[in-house]
Computed example of a mutant assay.
Amino acid sequence: MQRILQPGEIEALDRTSLLRTRLPQPASLFAERAARLAQKAEGNPIGDYLRFLARLVRAQQQAAGKVQTSAPDPAQIARAQEHSMPLLPAASHIDPAWLGVLDELLAALDGAAELPQALQPTLQALRAMPADARDALARRTLMGLLAGPDDLAAAPIVMAALQVVFADRASRLQEADIPYTDPATICPVCGSAPAASVLRIGGREAGLRYLHCGTCCTEWHMVRVKCSHCESTKGVHYQGLQSEDGSLKDEVVLAETCDQCHSYRKLTNQEKDPLAEPLADDLASLLLDLLMADTPFARASMNPLLPMADAGDAPA
Rank of each mutant, 00 (worst) to 15 (best):
Q6S: 08
Q6L: 13
G8T: 02
R15M: 09
R15I: 06
S17L: 14
L19Y: 08
L19N: 13
R20G: 10
Q25I: 06
P26E: 12
L29M: 13
Q39N: 06
A41H: 06
A41N: 04
E42P: 01
N44V: 06
I46L: 09
G47A: 07
Y49E: 14
F52K: 08
L53P: 09
A54S: 13
R58N: 13
A59I: 09
Q60K: 06
Q61W: 02
A64E: 02
K66V: 13
K66A: 15
Q68G: 09
P72Y: 01
P72K: 09
D73N: 15
P74G: 14
P74W: 10
A75Y: 06
Q76F: 07
A78G: 09
R79K: 15
Q81V: 08
H83M: 05
H83T: 15
A90K: 04
A91W: 06
S92H: 08
S92V: 10
P96R: 03
W98S: 09
V101K: 05
L102F: 07
D103Y: 07
L105M: 11
L106F: 11
A108C: 12
A108T: 10
D110H: 14
D110R: 13
G111D: 13
A118C: 11
A118Y: 13
Q120H: 15
Q120C: 11
Q120R: 15
L123C: 12
M129T: 10
A138I: 02
R140H: 13
L142I: 07
G144D: 04
G144R: 04
G144W: 02
L145F: 07
L145P: 02
G148C: 02
G148H: 00
G148N: 07
P149L: 11
A153T: 08
A153Y: 01
A154Q: 08
P156T: 06
V158C: 09
V158L: 12
A160V: 03
F166W: 11
A167V: 01
S171R: 14
L173N: 03
E175M: 07
A176L: 05
D177C: 00
P179S: 08
I186Q: 12
I186V: 14
C187W: 05
C190T: 05
G191I: 05
S192Y: 02
A193W: 13
A193G: 05
R204E: 15
G207A: 01
G207P: 12
G207K: 04
L208M: 13
H212R: 10
H212Q: 14
T215H: 11
C216Y: 04
T218V: 14
M222V: 14
K226S: 15
C230A: 03
E231H: 05
E231R: 06
S232V: 01
T233D: 13
T233C: 07
K234F: 06
L241V: 03
L241K: 05
D245V: 00
G246D: 12
S247N: 12
D250N: 15
E256F: 00
T257N: 08
T257I: 00
C261I: 02
R265D: 02
L267R: 11
D273V: 00
L275G: 03
P278A: 04
L279E: 03
D282Q: 01
L283C: 06
L287W: 01
L287G: 06
L288F: 00
D289C: 01
L290W: 04
L290V: 13
L291Y: 11
A293G: 08
A293Y: 04
T295G: 00
M302W: 08
P304I: 12
L305Y: 07
L306I: 09
L306T: 06
D310G: 07
A314P: 01
A316W: 05
